[in-house]
């Protein structure tokens, strides 16, 4: 009897200790993980998807060449295409692939646009970029596989499961943002698109340095094939694009390989670098960082061209007549225009 009493007291004590300890650790973890709100907002792009209504016609996959160069608002406003960009900084091809797997858990779009610049990487690159892509993903087998495929040598899977272990040393650099967004996220994009309105003409764009080998790596090819196969299996039309960024340099040898692949697989491939005239892009006014990324007018120009092409070639439905969806877009467009106006005002004041 006494022993039983002691045992139940021990269990009660353990429980009474474990609950506050775990709660405390949870709160501390929330506190120290980066919030990607005002600093490095790119890190919040992937996670924002889960707050969306998921009935998109088109999903973009890729890196900054996607989330800074294509405007879903234009695609909706002018063609009735409901699109979303699942892109983040230096998003590797396998990350794009697993993001598509993740997307397919919620919806099956009619088309996927994949930016082929990611083909240049065959190995995991930088932990910081991995984090920005992977942390935003909800836990699923796709996320686990994406982490395992992306980790650099110094990374550890456990650090993704318990980010506190990764960010433990951030305690000395915590700011107001960390408290402010401890339990909520800041909206940093417009269906995955981030806008910049300033203009910096592209001058003296450096030529690409000579590479020892221009062939894309086996791993990159394998994931492109997987991406193609997955789209085919799900009845999704895959479109390959090369965004019109002048740098990083897009080599003719790379272009040849992608063209050949698209031809072989019967895929639509659009290289915007060769469509300057058609899209009306002007590198003197349409880029905000001298040719690396497009600014808002630039992004809207090529989105307009892309929308028309997709509608013509893929027969994507114009959904502007859907009331509920149109209502959602009214709000989105208002937010888009508000940010645009704020940025222009700030630019004028500067």
């Amino acid at each position: 009897m006494a022993a039983e009493k002691t045992r139940s007291r021990a269990w009660a004590r353990l429980l009474l200790t474990a609950v506050p300890v775990l709660l405390c650790l949870f709160l501390l973890q929330r506190l120290v993980v980066p919030k990607y709100a005002d600093t490095l907002p790119e890190g919040a792009l992937i996670g924002a998807y889960y707050r969306e209504e998921k009935d998109h016609d088109l999903i973009f996959l890729g890196d900054c060449e996607v989330y800074e160069n294509f405007s879903p608002k234009v695609l909706w406003e002018e063609y009735g295409i409901n699109s979303y960009i699942r892109g983040s900084a230096q998003q590797l091809i396998w990350q794009s692939y697993y993001l598509l797997e993740d997307t397919l858990r919620y919806e099956t779009p009619d088309a996927v646009v994949f930016n082929v610049l990611a083909m240049q990487y065959d190995e995991p690159q930088r932990e910081a970029y991995n984090r920005m892509t992977l942390e935003g993903m909800r836990w699923s087998p796709a996320k686990v596989r994406s982490i395992l495929a992306s980790m650099t040598e110094e990374e550890h899977f456990l650090d993704y499961v318990f980010p506190l272990l990764r960010y433990h040393s951030r305690w000395s650099e915590l700011g107001v943002e960390d408290l402010q967004y401890m339990f909520r996220s800041k909206s940093v994009s417009h269906n995955g698109f981030t806008m910049r309105v300033e203009a910096r003409p592209a001058e003296n764009v450096p030529q690409g340095r000579v590479l020892p080998d221009y062939c894309f790596g086996d791993r990159a090819w394998a994931y492109l094939e997987k991406l193609t196969a997955l789209c085919r299996e799900k009845g999704i039309q895959l479109v390959l694009v090369k965004a019109p960024s002048l740098y990083p340099y897009w080599y003719p040898q790379w272009e040849e390989q992608i063209e050949a692949y698209a031809r072989e697989q019967g895929l639509l491939y659009i290289n915007f670098l060769e469509l300057t005239e058609e899209t009306g892009l002007d590198y003197a006014t349409d880029t905000y960082d001298a040719g690396l990324h497009l600014n808002l007018p630039g992004a809207e120009k090529i989105s307009r061209w892309l929308g028309r092409t997709l509608q013509e070639q893929l027969s994507l439905e114009d959904r502007r007549g859907e009331e509920a969806l149109a209502r959602r877009w009214v709000e989105k467009i208002a937010a888009y225009e508000a940010e645009r106006d704020t940025q222009y005002a700030a630019l004028a004041a500067a």
């Binding site: 200790t17 300890v21 405390c24 501390l28 932990e127 110094e154 990374e155 550890h156 650090d159 506190l164 272990l165 990764r166 433990h168 040393s169 305690w171």
Partner: peptide, 19 residues
């Protein structure tokens, strides 16, 4: 319990480990 948990937090947050 508070003391040992405090020490645990010190190791967790101030320890030199990880990337």
């Amino acid at each position: 319990a508070l003391l040992w948990f405090g020490l645990f937090l010190v190791v967790l947050f101030m320890g030199f480990y990880g990337i």
